[in-house]
Design a protein around this nucleic acid. Structure first.
Length: 434
RNA sequence: UCCUCGGUAGCUCAAUGGUAGAGCAUUCGGCUGUUAACCGAAGGGUUCCAGGUUCGAGUCCUGGCCGAGGAGCCA
């Protein structure tokens, strides 16, 4: 029996007989020649069937194949300059697992389709070369993030998905019935991360988060994945340094391991290669002045809109760290700057090329009395935060961290128009299926 | 929630208020190196839904449903 081989490794088997297991991607015909394209999830290779060279039943079996029919094919790998991947396969025999009937053809043809149709068929769309490339880059980014923290002494501590209260305002929470009481799907692991950091020093969580925002833009999902590190005794500058080092590490890894995928996606790779440490830093005050100079309507005290973020990052080669936003527009747990209490020790990282905010974080309030005051000012249910206040009652220390939305990072690194392609099954305002 | 645009064949789209069409897909035929192959033929329609205007509506009007882009909000 010839060995079963993945298509991405066929180059190691030139001149040898192998078995491929996969699906028919496309079939071209030229008289008594057949050119079936096989895919197996690791790559695509063209097969060649010459009528005079194979038994009639083999020729007929291949000729009858329909797109996405599943099969095991035996053949001989051969280097050929005419083949896109440099190799093609002379088919010797084929075992058809399922031939899709012609009356019910595979819906996604190798032609143009609209986004609604593709989203309705997301479960099949994932098979396309482009979607597979995105899944590969997403995987690499997640792996890189975990390696980055694991190698630096961080402990992954999982935070809960059911939560009893909001951590950043109640309007954007998904409410669920939790037996006889209300619970909410988490919108951040942040508060629990702080407890975990007091236990292990350096921690991170990585999991899905949920926001019931009625946002319908290319940057929003209702369910998205976030990685959130939190470090005891760290200050704002430490959080900024950690964030930029993490991004640099991710880029280096993706460029090392996923170059073919980036090429498939037609990403301008040189734009990623240019990004070197350190990343520029800018205060909110400076950012507002620059934006006003560029014609933005923004006033000091207001938050940036999507266009403002684009204006700030346009022309920049590296991600931009904007720090010290007004406390009034930031979450209740942000520490005020001791030199200027009206601004918070927080930071947002804006990705280049108009991709906007990919990281948000900063230094947390460590003082019990001030935190109690903030909870009251934000009209948050004090009782639900008693455990959180305990962290300030028992050995409070300065601590900082941030959150990075995986999908926005994937969209930026892959150069995608919309985050819906960065996650296998996106959940959006008007999309819950498949 | 608001603003803008859209919904016609399985898919992508055409069609001055006057006989609903093309390309791809499907079926059949042709081609010994095709690259989203090509060439020829066939089949394929509740024009999103409900009203209205009109001799006549895919087209105009009203309401609804669904979707896309954006705003606000956010990672």
């Amino acid at each position: 029996m010839p060995p079963v081989v993945e298509i991405r490794k066929v180059s190691e088997y030139a001149g040898q007989e192998v078995i491929l297991q996969g699906w028919l991607y496309n079939l071209r015909e030229s008289g008594k020649l057949l050119f079936p394209l096989f895919r197996d999830g690791t790559g695509i290779i063209q097969g060649v069937v010459v009528k005079s060279a194979v038994p009639p039943e083999v020729f007929d079996a291949v000729r009858g194949l329909t797109q996405e029919s599943s099969l095991r094919v035996t053949g001989k790998v051969r280097a050929d300059k005419r083949a896109p991947g440099g190799f093609e396969m002379d088919v010797l025999s084929v075992e058809v697992l399922q031939c899709i009937p012609a009356e019910t053809p595979y819906p996604i043809t190798p032609k143009d389709h609209g986004i609604e149709f593709l989203m309705d068929h997301r479960h099949l769309w994932l098979r396309s070369t482009r979607q597979r490339a995105i899944l590969g880059v997403r995987h690499e980014i997640i792996k890189a993030v975990r390696d980055f923290f694991d190698d630096r002494g961080f402990t992954l501590v999982d935070t809960p998905i059911f939560t009893p209260a909001a951590c950043e305002g109640t309007t954007t929470l998904f409410e669920v019935n939790y037996f006889d009481e209300k619970a909410y799907l988490t919108q951040s692991g942040q508060l629990y991360n702080e407890a975990n950091a007091m236990a292990v020093g350096k921690t991170y969580c990585f999991g899905p988060t949920f926001r019931a925002e009625k946002s319908k833009t290319r940057r929003h999902l209702t369910e998205f994945w976030m990685v959130e590190p939190e470090v005891a005794f760290a200050h704002l500058d430490d959080a900024m340094a950690l964030g930029e080092q993490m991004i640099a590490f991710i880029l280096e890894r993706v460029l090392e391991k996923r170059r073919p995928e980036l090429q498939t996606l037609e990403r301008k790779i040189e734009n990623l290669e240019r990004i070197k440490l350190p990343f520029p830093r800018m205060s909110y005050d400076e950012a507002v002045k620059i934006l006003q100079g560029k014609g933005s309507e923004i006033q000091w005290g207001g938050d940036f809109g999507g266009t403002d973020e684009t204006l700030l990052s346009e022309g920049a080669e590296r991600p931009l760290l904007v720090h010290r936003y007004p406390s009034a527009i930031k979450a209740f747990y942000m520490a005020p700057d001791p030199l200027r209490p009206e601004v918070a020790l927080c930071v947002d990282m804006l990705a280049p090329e108009g991709y906007g905010e990919i990281i948000g974080g900063g230094e947390r309030l460590a003082d019990l009395a001030l935190l109690e005051q903030r909870i009251e000012e934000h009209k948050l249910p004090r009782k639900a935060f008693e455990w959180y206040l305990d962290l300030r009652r028992y050995g409070t220390v300065p601590h900082s961290g941030f959150g990075m939305g995986i999908e926005r990072a994937v969209a930026w690194i892959c150069g995608l128009e919309h985050v819906r392609e960065t996650i296998p099954f996106p959940r959006m305002l008007y999309r819950l299926t498949p």
